[in-house]
Amino acid sequence: MEAVRATEIMVAAGARELRDGQTVVVGLGLPQVACVLARRTHAPALSLLLEIGVTNMNPVDTPIGLADSRIFYRATCWSGFLDILGMNLHRGVVDVGFLGALEIDRFGNINTTLLKEDSGKLRYFNGSAGGNDVASLAGRVIVIMRHEKRKLPTAVAHLTSPGFPGGRSRKDLGLRGEGPQRIITDKAVLGFDRGTHQATLLSLHPGVELQDVIENTGFRMETPKTVPATPLPTPEELRLLREEIDPKNVYLG
């Protein structure tokens, strides 16, 4: 079998964060793949909600985004923002929000809006869409993204979606939900300290050196004395990912 890719470790780690029976609002890309993997393995009763207004889709072709008809296929409900982000997320029945990010900082604040170039010029990106809503309102938030120093700064260039701004508690800030709980990257899995609300290292993917992660993280991070290894995907998870969920490598490649 072909060597395990970092993206496969990421989505398997993401899938393992989900419990059977939970309700999840999921964003574009790898989060989607992780949720589909969880449903096809240990969490068949997971409810997947897409902000566009799709519940529990069963795509047979890999969708390229939320607006792709491929992701509407064999859903159990078609609705819209008001249902998914309003009467589910805002209502408080969404257990997990699963997001991607342009940048995330040590307090789990997410930027999907803009970056500042060295010249001082601003470069705009996709903005919030449902990201701020999910980060503000979901029970817990999981972020999946590439591990690069510039993507993991001490403070984000623009705070699109709040984690624990200023290291304050969610309750203090007037926010619902427990906030960000995991950052899953192509090198490691990070968690958040319950007291300081700062990101901490939870596990390193097999073959990744601690020094590599420290050098590629823009903020100082608590690291345990012995760092556990992130579990590899099982052969069945790999088969599902490669043969059924993303055979054309739209997301995993």
Partner: peptide, 10 residues
């Protein structure tokens, strides 16, 4: 009223 937007730069 809404519970989004709070504590954000948005």
């Amino acid at each position: 009223p809404i519970k989004s937007l709070i504590a954000s730069e948005v």
